[in-house]
């Protein structure tokens, strides 16, 4: 059994910026994307509100847009002094080097790692395990927790627990676990999914998908045994603030950085 880490170790809140062509966009399942602002300005705002970490996720469709990513990462990194992870389209060690050179502390890899799991160890041996976040998109299929690639569209033979263990064995430093079923619903994280994956690995698990209210974060850190929780649109919309979520966590005896 994983018990909550004792004392002062804070439960981490992470804001995700979905970026296309240098702008933050939002939309359910990448359809009907709407502009949600300037990445650097949003990052600075979340930092001021007490976010613990930032993720820039490149949801770009074209090669031209991808070239803009390094500039976006640099602009975000210039204004904040908290951990920054960058994901989306990282397919090689060179891709990882590019975003790390631009100011990222960690890279998220997903589809490329499923296609070639050695990518995890190759990036880890060059930049350290702390720089490697393996993103897992999982979908419930009866009793199975099927890992999907290509932004959740393509089922793979992997089970989420088995793939998380494999990623850890190959040198991943953290797992970013997104519930495809919960994503965009705002009805709460998939706590059973998070708990089973978090309990199966010794590295931190970041829960993602479904955040809609401060109580959802309390649930995912207690019943879901998450080490960190990520959300995007509720922060952009100001549906709930970083402060409100942290206040709720603290009320429930979960340590947070205030």
């Amino acid at each position: 059994m994983t018990r909550p880490a004792p004392d002062t170790f804070a439960r981490r809140l992470i804001a995700c910026l979905d970026v296309r062509a240098g702008r933050v966009v939002k939309g359910v399942h990448f359809e009907g994307l709407r502009d949600a602002g300037d990445p650097a300005a949003l990052a600075a705002r979340y930092d001021a509100e007490g976010i613990d970490e930032l993720v820039v996720l490149d949801v770009t469709a074209t090669a031209e847009d991808r070239l803009a990513l390094a500039r976006t990462v640099s602009a975000v990194a210039a204004n904040v002094f908290i951990p920054l992870a960058v994901g989306g389209g990282v397919r090689s060690v060179d891709d990882a080097a590019r975003v790390i050179d631009a100011g990222a502390d960690k890279v998220g890899i997903n589809t490329a790692a499923l296609g070639d799991p050695s990518l995890i160890s190759r990036i880890a041996s060059r930049f350290g395990s702390q720089a490697v976040v393996v993103a897992i998109d999982a979908k419930r299929d009866g009793d199975r927790l099927t890992v999907c690639s290509h932004a959740g569209r393509t089922p793979t033979p992997w089970d989420a627990v088995a793939w998380a263990r494999e990623a850890q064995a190959r040198g991943a430093g953290e797992i970013l676990l997104t519930s495809i079923d919960a994503d965009g619903t705002r009805r709460g994280f998939d706590c059973p999914l998070t708990a089973v994956v978090s309990g199966a690995v010794g590295i931190p698990v970041i829960a993602s998908g479904g955040a809609g209210a401060p109580s959802h974060f309390v649930d995912v850190f207690s019943a879901g045994r998450a080490d960190a929780a990520l959300a995007a649109s509720i922060f952009h919309d100001e549906t709930c603030s970083v402060r409100a979520i942290k206040a709720a966590l603290r009320t429930h005896g979960l340590p947070v950085r205030l």
Binding site: M1, T8, F9, G173, E174, G202, I203, D227
Partner: peptide, 18 residues
């Protein structure tokens, strides 16, 4: 990777602490 009471701890220690 265990607390003195026997609870499991994740290693690496990754995150914010006092």
């Amino acid at each position: 990777d265990r607390t003195p009471e026997g609870g499991r701890l994740k290693v690496p220690h990754a995150g914010w602490n006092v």
